[in-house]
Simulated scan of single mutants.
Amino acid sequence: MNEVDALDLVREALWTIIISSSPAVGAAMIVGITIALFQALTQVQEMTLTFIPKILAIFLALIASGTFVGAQIASFTELVYDKIEHGF
């Protein structure tokens, strides 16, 4: 294994992490912006108001995108095992 192969594997790992985490992060971001807008409009400045809606949104996003995330991780795992089996 040389540097190019190692960097390619790290690049694929980072891309898999970004793709797999994007549904949960996107849901949390949308809910966070919505709650922040609600707080700005009503001038309710409660710090703990965002936690429960964000947790629920992340949980629902993970349930909805579970097969997609699992497929991405399985694809990366197959790539790694294929590289191990056939050599770098």
Rank of each mutant, 00 (worst) to 15 (best):
I18H: 01
H86V: 08
F68S: 05
Q45V: 07
W15S: 10
P23G: 04
A6R: 14
G26S: 05
Q45F: 03
D8Y: 00
S21D: 05
Q72P: 01
S22P: 01
A57H: 01
E85S: 03
I52F: 15
L62M: 15
E78K: 14
T67N: 11
H86Y: 12
Q72K: 10
G70P: 08
Q39A: 07
L41E: 15
W15V: 05
G66I: 11
A28C: 07
I52W: 14
F88P: 00
L7P: 00
E85K: 00
A64I: 04
L14P: 03
W15Y: 13
F68T: 12
T48C: 04
P53L: 07
Q43P: 02
P23Y: 02
D5P: 00
V80M: 13
I33H: 02
N2V: 05
I63E: 08
A6D: 11
A6H: 07
V4A: 08
A6I: 11
L37C: 07
G66Y: 08
S65L: 09
E85Q: 07
T48F: 10
D5V: 14
V31H: 02
A36E: 13
A57D: 03
I18F: 01
W15I: 03
S20V: 04
I19K: 01
L41D: 13
L9W: 06
N2E: 15
A57K: 02
S65D: 13
Q39H: 02
I17Q: 03
I19E: 12
F88K: 01
I17A: 14
F88I: 01
A64V: 06
F38A: 15
H86S: 09
K83M: 13
A57G: 03
S20N: 03
L60R: 04
S75L: 05
N2P: 05
A61D: 04
K54W: 04
S75G: 15
A36V: 04
A71M: 09
Q43S: 12
T42Q: 07
V4S: 02
A27P: 02
I35E: 09
L9Y: 05
S22A: 11
V44F: 14
T77R: 15
Q72T: 04
A28T: 06
D8G: 09
A74V: 03
